[in-house]
Design a protein around this nucleic acid. Structure first.
Length: 261
DNA sequence: ATTGGGACAAAGAT
DNA sequence: AATCTTTGTCCCAA
């Protein structure tokens, strides 16, 4: 368990300060933001749902700012997981492979992209066109918006069939991501370890020593990664051989329209 | 810069 | 206690 952020906190990860976060703050940021940028959203309806508070856990380190909560009950999460397993259409062919140093690999997971009409998202050199939202995805997206106040126009779905499936260290630093918006990561199925590492703490004894921040992402959980976390911290989902069942992760994002480069 | 995998070391399990 | 398994770190491949 070590310095994992869950249940009782270990004192060894002194860089990981965990405590309750006041949700008022999020609410305020939200209402201001929506007035200027999302005029068509019914903000009243959104704010009304704030009457349903969720106990947040604040996860902080140097330039890392996340909020973690259980968004769905076991029963809700079970149902949503099942629906996702039935509905989500994953990429195949080119989009399911990655080329590194001239070699082509199958990515060790399955991926899908959904979002508003006409949205594209390019990462790892591959352009993905968003499929239209499904009712289940809209339901989850709206639940995230109700509890966070943030709206999203895109979701990247990763399915890890078991503990062998994983994703290497990376940042979500694509240029078309709205820099002021958090990324909301919702998890269903098998709980998996999730590890942040500061960009200056990678490689051999480079720079200062900064402890990694490790958490476990539970069934039905939501992890909000707030700016500037993604600028300074890489994250990964490492192999866990003991995990025998699948996990589906949805990362809701805000993609900038049109204006690029 | 970027990703996955191999060699090896360290830690964990039985 | 010893050995096997799993996890962590470093390094390499166009």
């Amino acid at each position: 368990m070590d310095n994992f952020v869950m249940g009782e906190q270990s004192k060894r990860s002194c860089s990981t300060d965990v405590r309750r976060s006041p949700r008022k703050k999020i609410k305020v940021e939200k209402s201001e933001r929506m007035k200027e940028e999302d005029p068509e959203e019914e903000e009243d309806a959104v704010l009304a749902e704030f009457a349903h508070p969720v106990p947040w856990r604040k996860i902080e380190a140097d330039r890392l700012d996340c909020d973690y909560a259980l968004l769905f009950s076991k029963q809700e999460a079970d149902q949503l997981f099942k629906q996702l397993e039935e509905e989500v259409v994953y990429s195949t062919g080119e989009a399911a492979k990655v080329q590194v140093f001239g070699k082509v690999h199958d990515i060790p997971r399955k991926q899908a992209t959904y979002g508003d009409e006409g949205l594209n998202y390019t990462y790892s050199g591959v352009k993905h066109s968003a499929r239209s939202w499904t009712p289940t995805l809209e339901q989850i997206r709206d639940a995230v918006t109700r509890t966070t106040g943030w709206t999203f126009n895109f979701v990247l779905i990763n399915r890890y069939k078991d503990g062998q499936d994983h994703i290497g260290e990376h940042r979500d630093d694509e240029r078309e991501l709205d820099p002021v918006s958090p990324i909301a990561s919702v998890s269903f199925g098998a709980a998996r370890d999730f590890i942040f590492r500061h960009r200056d703490a990678r490689g051999k004894q480079s720079g200062r020593q900064i402890e990694p921040v490790k958490l476990e992402l539970a069934h039905g959980s939501l992890l909000l990664m707030n700016p500037p976390t993604n600028t300074f911290w890489y994250h990964s989902l490492p192999v866990r051989k003991k995990v025998l069942s699948p996990r589906i992760n949805l990362t809701f994002r805000r993609i900038l329209r049109g204006s690029k480069k």
